[in-house]
Design a protein around this nucleic acid. Structure first.
Ligand SMILES: [Mg+2]
Ligand SMILES: [Mg+2]
Length: 1178
DNA sequence: ATGTTAGGTAAAGATT
DNA sequence: AATCTTTACCTAA
């Protein structure tokens, strides 16, 4: 503080003397009984967010006192007269040790003057324990001098079952797989593996007499047989004591096994429980509530393991692998791991959750099965740990940051960066930010408010991030260049010397963000004290320090320098990697470069992380703002380099540039290099690079695209050198059902195939029509309807759980004693409302089926025939299939939402709902689905359409040729006449009803064709007012393209037998049986049966559904019809298909045509994909 | 307690 | 009935 005069006023520019400060401080310390002998004045720097602390070299008072005294722990300095801040009064000894002794990562240590701690006073389980008087006795030795020792690694897995009466998880079997020779650089000696397996008896049961025999017959070692859970766990602790592993490995060990183990050891009174870690503990920590293993382990639980590294492969896989499921067996498949009996199969993945541990304990075969599972999972977790190279990678990361290895394994990135910066700033004599003090009192009070406010506030961004350009959507088949800045944010920090020490913080605004900070000037790169030295130097000529032009002094730009160090050493490692041929050494180098990259890339994130000690939002904001600037500048530069270039998209650090070139890749590469050179001229450190060249790209939305990219630019444009790359599309997201994904993949492949537009249209059209049929006919695998969503919290914690399908399913799973945890994937299928029967399913009677969540059921529930659940095919078509497919196709010539809907068999016209989304320029049509869409009355739907009229060639009577109508009338008549199903014969559709004269197919064909032409003319004669999205207010006087399509769809409906079949039956049942349904239930059932029989008989004689079986052999086998009748049926099917195909083709060409016209009249100024091709056609 | 922001999509509820 | 808002999920960078 400024010195205060006798009147209590601050004397400007004057400082209190050292004696005055020491006196005031000494008083405070004396009150806490802290010795005050060692205080001295020192020079220190400061660069962080605490206000009022000078940011140049300043005099500080340094206080040292023995660790045995309490922490000074002063949070409020306002009452002091001579000083305004105290730093480091609450620092942990561990942090001090690491910083003072410059210990960075695991290494050998030299310890001088250690004294042996007597056995009785040991605080650890170590065989020998020593103590030293001062941290100065400890010195770290670099690995280069001494080879690091091998680690003993123990993979631990256990099987549990729920004790229903006590509602707790009990442990039935445990496997430990131990390897004593795991090298820290990633090599494993698989000959050093031992296995320990124990299984216990259940209740009063005895072990089966033939247990040994069964195990021996399978050539399997007999497990240890324990009489009780207590004996099992005591045995396990003894085994851990004997092995004394350096590292424990387990899949979800932190989220399940640890808590269950501690619960059971507490419940059984296992005496040596603290052997699980290396510390001798007396007090069992506070455990989770509940059955054990229901969620994240508590802080105290983790502390039990102190002294051992823990590799939880579940958490590690989530951090280091990009997968859609992190179940151990799933990962085993995707990572190609092998268990003791070979690779993991799909069947194993499916069976695993259903293993009934308590039941299997009852037989020798069952116990064998359990032991095998238990062993397998222990082996797989270990294998997964090796595969991810956890030991070398985390060791490297730890060495870079200088934190604790055990903390790197639990994944806290922020802490790693904190330590990296702590080491750097400590070295230059900076005062570092203190760890935030835990606030005890207010937390309790604000709990409730925080809970409510937090959900909204937590995710809310505090400042602007990367820029995403609005994509110019569509399919591009010219070469598209992808240029991408290398490590944009780390590079910007270097480029502009962004550091805690250089960026002048601006005012914080009302919205929580900061006003734009200015980029540091050259003047700011040298601190005042160094400037002073420089000045002296020029005055007296004595060399003191050397700073290059534009360079910085030691006390500035520590952050950019730290990054530069990382980037430079990565460059060196990569160079070595290129030259290295030995695969093992190569792997080590690859890990090193990975660790360097990971560390550099996470630095920016930690600047913006609120709980970080080095939190500096203003700097984070400046980084992203410079990033946006770099992108914008690049976008503006590109067209200036060459007029033909067009930036079609860009995200944060990349631009995609359409070249208009095709055929000559080398020309495109040359162009890319030209752009690269020009952009890079602008920057000192920042560098843009060619990330790829696309042969074709479908640009769908921001962050959503698919492209064919050239694998190796040197190898040119040939089919072998092409790879598909998909980003963000629905089909890469696990929250869409596999059916939707598979269909999207197919459609996308067609689109990117590079075949002519017409061909693509036809292929997609046929495919969608086929799939639509197949889905409606129930031919698709039930598994393909499963939607998977993960729980982001415990199911009970969802405020709107009644409305979330996966939460509903999860809650039911819990009721059935299945373990459901946060982040678990919950699979569900949306079912028809009519098939959801609350009685059968044991749900509440007032189950509200209007909500989607109430129609969502687990695959196992739907699979079970007793539930009667059926997937809601209409919902799937309208919600899971139609929108994603539309998004892929809507920018393709001749495709739009309605067309796709029609092809899929969705009813368009009357069920159209428009919604607008603020982000997309065009409103997207959403097709409503109904549970009874087949009941839609076609007469009503097509009432606006022109009817088809034929006259009988002989009696001139009008002939109705509509499958629907004829079928309906025929069966109605049979029913009313009470006919016997066996006497029903085949129907004729193309005949006069009066005189039975056949109306020949060519006549029908030509009449339809003629009609279509008339409509076509009517349509084209109009001014080509193109409306791809017809709305209700479009004037009815004009004949719109939608009306035209509607007409054609009506024609198709006349000859579409499968569709007619389903509709007609529903209509018959409604009209003929509805009157008796309520009043006479018995009669209703009887009548329903006879109607159904008559209907089926008619169908079977006329056009049996087996005719649609694709495989000819199977079709022949299943068909009951024979001889002439079969021939007739086949002919009829063929005739109908000829007619519908013909109409469908018109429907397609209509679409193509009007889109072409539309483009002719559209604003030609704007460049469009495939422009050239289109002009030619037009 | 445990890196950041940007963005699309669906469903349901609230508001106009 | 149309439109806006909120919540949840998952992805890109
Ligand atoms: Mg990049
Ligand atoms: Mg990029």
């Amino acid at each position: 503080r400024e010195k205060i005069d006798a009147q209590g006023l601050a004397i400007s520019g004057a400082e209190p003397t050292l004696v005055e400060v020491v006196q005031e401080l000494g008083d405070v310390m004396a009150k806490k009984n802290i010795p005050t002998r060692r205080m001295k004045a020192v020079d220190r720097w400061y660069a962080f967010e605490e206000e009022g602390v000078p940011k140049q070299k300043t005099k500080w008072v340094k206080v040292r006192y023995p660790a045995s005294s309490p922490a000074l722990n002063i949070s409020d300095c306002s009452k002091f007269k001579t000083f305004s801040h105290i730093f480091g009064d609450n620092r942990s000894f561990l942090e001090l040790l690491l910083l003072k002794r410059k210990m960075k990562g695991p290494s050998w240590l030299t310890i001088k003057g250690a004294t042996r701690v007597s056995e009785g006073n040991q605080i650890t389980w170590a065989s020998e324990e020593y103590s030293v008087d001062t941290y100065k006795s400890v010195t770290a030795l670099p690995d280069t001098d001494h080879r690091p020792p091998p680690l003993t690694v123990m993979s631990l897995n256990m099987l549990t079952f729920l004790n229903e009466s006590k509602k707790v998880n009990e442990i039935a079997a445990v496997t430990c797989v131990v390897n004593r020779e795991v090298s820290m650089d990633g090599q494993v000696n698989n000959n050093a593996v031992t296995k320990w397996t124990a299984v216990r008896r259940l209740g009063d049961n005895v072990f089966p007499f033939d247990l040994e025999k069964v195990f021996r017959s399978k050539n399997c070692e007999v497990p240890r047989k324990e009489q009780t859970e207590k004996a099992l766990l005591t045995g396990l602790m003894n085994e851990i004591e004997r092995t004394d592993p350096d590292m424990l490995v387990g899949h979800n060990f932190m989220g399940f096994d640890l808590d269950v183990l501690l619960h059971r050891m507490a419940a059984n009174g296992v005496g040596n429980w603290s052997r699980i870690g290396k510390m001798r503990l007396r007090q069992m920590p506070r455990l989770q509530s509940g059955a054990g293993g229901t969620g994240e382990s508590t802080w105290e639980e983790r502390a039990v393991l102190n002294g051992r590294l823990v590799a939880d492969t579940y958490l590690l896989a989530r951090e280091y692998l990009k997968e859609s499921s992190y179940k151990l067996l799933r990962l085993a498949i995707t990572q190609g791991l092998e268990g003791p009996s070979g690779p993991v199969t799909e069947t194993m993945v499916e069976e695993e959750p259903f293993l009934d541990v308590a039941k299997e304990l009852g037989s020798s075969e069952g116990i064998y099965k359990l032991v095998h599972w238990c062993d397998t999972k222990a082996v797989l977790a270990l294998g997964l740990m090796y595969k991810m190279q956890i030991i070398p990678l985390t060791k490297r990361l730890t060495t870079l940051a200088g934190n604790l290895w055990s903390r790197t394994l639990t994944g806290s990135r922020a802490e790693r960066i904190e330590y990296l910066l702590l080491h750097k700033f400590h070295l230059q004599k900076f005062i570092c930010p203190d760890k935030a003090r835990r606030k005890w009192a207010p937390k309790q009070n604000e709990d409730d408010e925080a809970e409510v406010g937090a959900t909204a506030a937590r995710g809310k961004p505090k400042y602007l991030g990367g820029k995403v350009l609005e994509p110019k959507r569509g399919l591009y088949t010219d070469y598209v260049l992808l240029l991408d800045f290398n490590s944009l944010y780390p590079s910007l920090i270097q480029e502009y010397n962004l550091c805690f020490t250089t960026v002048e913080r601006s005012e914080q605004l009302a919205d929580g963000s900061y006003a734009d900070c200015p980029v540091p000037t050259e003047d700011q790169l040298v601190c005042d004290s160094c400037k002073h030295l420089l000045k002296q130097q020029t005055e007296d000529g004595k060399p003191r320090l050397k700073i290059e032009k534009g360079g910085s002094c030691l006390h500035r730009c520590l952050l950019p320098k730290a990054i530069k160090e990382l980037v430079d050493s990565r460059g060196q490692v990569k160079k070595l990697l290129k030259a290295e041929t030995d695969p093992q050494k190569k792997a080590v180098l690859d890990i090193r470069q990975k660790a360097l990259k990971l560390t550099a890339n996470s630095i920016y994130g930690c600047l913006g992380f609120q709980s970080s000690r080095f939190y500096a939002q203003a700097i984070a904001q400046l980084v992203t703002s410079k990033g946006r600037e770099a992108l914008t500048n690049t976008v503006e530069m590109v067209p200036k380099i060459d007029q033909s270039l067009d930036v079609i998209y860009g995200d944060t650090d990349s631009v995609m540039i359409s070249t208009g070139m095709s055929g000559d890749v080398n020309a495109a590469i040359k162009m890319a290099n030209l752009i690269k050179k020009d952009v890079n001229k602008m920057y000192r450190c920042l560098e843009i690079d060619i990330d790829g060249i696309f042969k074709s790209i479908l640009l769908v939305r921001k962050k959503k695209y698919a492209a064919l990219t050239l694998k190796d630019l040197a190898k040119g444009d040939n089919p072998d050198n092409v790879k598909q790359e998909i980003k963000g599309l629905d089909l890469v997201r696990r929250d869409w059902c596999p059916l939707s994904q598979k269909m999207s993949v197919q459609v996308l492949n067609f689109i990117l195939s590079g075949r002519p537009g017409d061909e693509i249209l036809d292929t997609i059209n046929t495919y969608l029509a086929e799939m639509g049929d197949s889905i409606r006919n129930g031919k698709e695998d039930l598994k393909d309807f499963i939607i998977t969503k993960s729980l982001t919290k415990a199911p009970e914690q969802y405020a709107d759980r009644a409305v979330q399908p996966h939460v509903q399913v999860a809650l039911r799973m819990k009721e059935q004693n299945l373990t459901v945890q946060t982040n678990d994937l919950i699979p569900y299928i949306v079912c028809e409302a009519t098939s959801v029967n609350p009685d059968v399913l044991g749900l509440k009677a007032d189950w509200d089926k209007s909500k989607l969540a109430m129609r969502a059921f687990h695959h196992d529930e739907v699979k079970n025939p007793a539930t009667g659940l059926k997937p809601d095919l209409d919902w799937y078509l309208a919600t899971q299939i139609h929108p994603p497919i539309t998004r892929l196709c809507e920018h393709i010539q001749g495709m739009d939402s309605h067309y796709i809907a029609e092809t899929l068999g969705l009813q368009a016209s009357k069920y159209l709902v428009h919604t607008s989304s603020s982000t997309s320029s065009e409103p997207m049509a959403v097709y409503r689905y109904t549970t009874h869409s087949y009941d839609m009355d076609d007469e009503q739907r097509y009432e606006d359409c022109e009817q088809l009229q034929f006259d009988c060639g002989r009696c001139k009577a009008p002939v109705v040729i509509s499958i629907k109508q004829r079928l309906y009338e025929a069966v109605e008549k049979l029913f009313q006449e009470n006919m016997d199903p066996s006497s029903v014969g085949p129907m004729n559709f193309f005949t006069c009803e009066q005189c039975s004269t056949v109306v020949p197919l060519p006549k029908i064909y030509n009449t339809v064709l003629l009609k279509i032409r008339q409509h076509q003319q009517k349509y084209y004669s109009q001014c080509p007012q193109i409306s791809t999205h017809p709305s209700k207010d479009a004037p009815h006087s004009t004949y719109t393209d939608q009306m035209f399509r509607h007409q054609l769809t009506y024609y198709i409906s006349m000859f579409d037998f499968p569709n007619a079949r389903d509709q007609v039956y529903n209509r018959l049942e409604r009209k003929l049986l509805a009157p008796v349904r309520k009043s006479q239930p018995a009669l209703f059932t009887q009548k329903q049966r006879s109607l159904n029989d008559l209907f089926q008989a008619t169908i079977n004689k006329t056009l049996p559904s087996e005719l649609w079986i694709e495989d000819p052999l199977e079709r022949k086998r299943k068909l009951v019809l024979r001889g002439e009748q079969l021939q007739k049926a086949e002919q009829l099917k063929e005739d109908l298909s000829v007619l519908t195909k013909m109409i469908r083709i018109r429907l397609q060409s209509c679409r193509r045509h009007y889109v072409n016209l539309g483009d002719l009249f559209a604003n030609m100024g704007q460049r469009r994909p495939e422009e050239d091709g289109m002009k030619a056609k037009a």
